[in-house]
Simulated assay, not measured.
Amino acid sequence: MSNVTTRALRLLALLQSRTVWTGPELAGELDVTERTVRRDVDRLRSMGYPVLTSAGHGGGYQLGAGRELPPLLLGSQEAVAVAVGLRLAAASGLEGLDAEALRALAALDRILPPTVRSEVSAVTDALGVVARPVPAASAAVLIALATAVRDGLRVRLDYEKGNGERGERRIEPRRVLSVDGRWYLFAWDLDREDWRTFRLDRMHTVHPSTFPITPRPTPDIEATVRESITVGGYTTAVVARIRRPLHEVEKLTPVRAATVTADGEHACIVRAGSDSGDLRWVAMHLISLGGPIEVIQPPELLTVLQEISTWSGAATLAADAR
């Protein structure tokens, strides 16, 4: 393969790897002059590849979209990263995406060079994803919402509440998040005039509009979603102080179990929620954190903790234990 052809393929790979490159950046990557870069860009255009040029601040070269766009060029490490991502996508909890991800993985395997294929196979064969069953969200719903977030457009949802009630929600989507295997949307609810967190598995249909979202101050999205998941949807709010540093308690607290904030250097506040007045699972989690517990609310949580202490203190060793 000639140096010109090798350089053209390298230029094509660079253009695929980033949205915009300046002439000096490409010249530095290819170790050639900017004049040579311009000639190579013209060569790619003559071969049917849509290389666009924009002037001014932030301008440069970029690969445009189109039917003549070539297959994606991947190095060995990039191919491994894509394969790992596809394996994770197959276990993502998105209805219909599992089969598509496995088909994409098979297609990737067919087009890779032998040396890269063997490296990818070695990694993917060693991978396994073990996850507890969660309600499946629709891949079509995810794509529609992600597109609306990208384009900054309002959408209408056919949404089902936890009690089974269905209705239309008019929202301005801001972020789609995967939290502990379950998918959520953070959005501004136009009818309630407040930020809301929605579960994708409860969305039956998504109808994008052409109306742009309204710029407005946005809270810390990840913190707000976590607070909504762990406390907002429950009838009883639980708050307790744990006499252990924040970084130690965070490592022991699943994302969807509770929110944890620092309370000085050696303590933190844990917030969680409970339904039907059953505080046992929250109490068991607080005990598992391994620090002195101070109940802030509700007062009956203290009784539950004491009952668990009495119950566990009565444990005995089985007669047939070895």
Rank of each mutant, 00 (worst) to 15 (best):
A137H: 00
R43A: 15
A237C: 09
Q297M: 11
Y159I: 06
A240D: 08
T253E: 02
R132Y: 11
Y234K: 11
R18V: 07
V129G: 03
V238A: 02
E34C: 10
H204P: 00
A314L: 10
T253M: 06
Y184P: 03
P298R: 08
D189P: 08
L52Y: 02
Y234F: 15
L289Y: 07
A8K: 13
G23T: 14
M1H: 13
A83N: 05
R244K: 15
V255K: 12
A187G: 08
L252K: 15
V206K: 05
R196G: 04
A104G: 12
R117F: 02
T115W: 01
K161C: 04
D42W: 01
P71A: 10
D109N: 04
A283K: 04
E227S: 15
E100F: 00
L44W: 06
E29A: 13
A104V: 01
V270G: 11
P113G: 09
W183C: 05
S288C: 08
T115V: 12
S309F: 10
T310E: 14
R117I: 04
V82W: 01
A144H: 06
E78I: 03
E307S: 12
Y234C: 12
A91W: 00
L108T: 07
R202E: 12
R244L: 13
R38V: 13
S118K: 12
D191I: 02
V179W: 01
L286C: 09
T6H: 12
S276N: 15
A99F: 01
E78C: 07
Q16I: 00
V129Y: 06
V134Y: 05
P219D: 07
V120D: 00
R170Q: 13
T236E: 13
P212G: 09
C268G: 04
